[in-house]
Design a protein around this nucleic acid. Structure first.
Lengths: 242, 242
DNA sequence: CGATCGTTTGAGTTTGATCAAATGTGGTGG
DNA sequence: CCACCACATTTGATCAAACTCAAACGATCG
């Protein structure tokens, strides 16, 4: 079985202990692994589905387009995240998903996962949990965009990204790969590209953060957190375990 | 059984047909009905729980406080909405819930609902669905606050509120009671009170909307929708039915 | 070695915030 | 019924954060 599924299972197990049989069965729903290049849509608004995508490697985002062509990125997807579990329930996506860097995704049989959910309430609840964590994330972003200054907003986002990547083992010390452009940060934070750039420079000058060549280095996480009012609890990385 | 539960059941049934026994059992989890006055917390961040609250009457909101005391309202709750179903899963609330007007809420036995969910996968999925609709709502608000002008933002919010209230039968023609202050609109839209007032006046002058004495009158819903780029699909009021 | 994409810098503008004060309204108690 | 108070709305004036436009600079790549 593909080892990438392990990240998903590990994530779900921060919430609930799953039976060995469930874990094995989940891993067996993987049909193929597919690669996407950067800036390719993994899933488009309103599209049908017969498979679920699980991010194994790379970085992707959920986004919404406005009539005038501007884009709001509403979430990031890191390895271990499921793209479209909500299509089981909602029938149509109200947003699209796009790779930011090359992505490797496992395709899970929708039928298989549905069947599994029918047999395992524990798994169902674990998947429900994962969507609630995303909801909490969206709410925090709303606060971020609504009530924080540009500097705080950016600092908050960088804290979040770093800590999420650290949780899945994708950081080294105080650094991580972050295949984003300043433009994409702007689309996330609802700021202009120019202003994002200025805030990044300010952070660099202040010795807080360096973001260059797709590498993010956080020189003082503590300071960055308090500068942005960051509190990781909304990420639910520790225990919601019952 | 309390008739107010009917609104919840009707809402859940836009998603899935529920068995008669499930519906009856759900209604029977109601232990009491409790009244809250305006501006009273129904549920505070981090609080324990042993009951679920279902809004029967009135208006409430989810909100988050910032260290500096400013407040972001992140959702409204109307009759038929459950306050805290996510505490089953998340264990701790990462936000609080407060009444905006006097509220009547049914208290459901948490134990009872949990038991019911254990026996009825259909109900579990219906409740999951209801949380996903809230997530979609939060994402749309993120777009609203991030990318729309003050005028559009306010127009969009008024469309949403009106259409949600209409869906639960709480409008008369083009009017509805809306027990909100301009200050609360400001906390929702991440605008200043003064600016919300100016936008409201502008809408009134344009003959689009009147909002006075806690009464909202939408003179031209069509125009208001197109002025704000409103598209109701994120509310999932029609069919996600399988 | 252009070409393309991303970053950086400067100058001027605008949206919406802040501060301050007037006006309106509803409720309470004398 | 009136005086008063608290709260909500309205208006004006000033200010600042972030935007837009424009252009230069720097990498990376075929």
């Amino acid at each position: 079985m593909n080892p990438g599924v392990g990240r998903l299972i590990r994530k779900l197990e921060t919430f609930a202990t799953l039976a060995e049989t469930d874990k094995r069965a989940l891993a067996e729903t993987v049909t193929t692994v597919r690669r996407f290049s950067a800036h390719e849509d993994l899933l488009r608004e309103g599209e049908p589905f017969d498979e679920l995508k699980l991010i194994l490697e790379g970085l992707a985002c959920r986004y919404k387009l406005l009539p005038d062509g501007r884009r709001q990125i509403v979430a990031y997807l890191v390895p271990g995240d499921l793209c479209d579990i909500r299509t089981f329930i909602l029938k149509r996506m109200d947003h699209s998903i796009c790779s930011l860097a090359p992505v490797e995704a496992a395709l899970l049989s929708a039928e298989g996962v549905l069947g599994l959910m029918g047999r395992s309430p524990a798994l169902t609840r674990a998947l429900w949990w994962s969507t609630l964590v995303e909801e909490a994330n969206a709410r925090e972003w709303l606060v971020n965009v609504g009530h924080r200054t540009a500097f705080e907003r950016l600092a908050h986002l960088l804290c979040e990204i770093f800590i999420r990547l650290r949780a899945v083992g994708l950081t080294q010390d105080n650094r991580c790969d972050l295949p984003l452009t300043q433009n994409e940060l702007a689309d996330t934070l609802a700021l202009s590209l120019v202003h994002v750039n200025r805030m990044l420079m300010e952070m660099r000058r202040a010795g807080l953060v360096t973001f260059q060549n797709k590498q993010l280095t956080i020189h003082d996480l503590q300071a960055l957190q308090s500068a942005s009012g960051f509190n990781a609890s909304y990420l639910h990385l520790d225990g919601d375990k019952h």
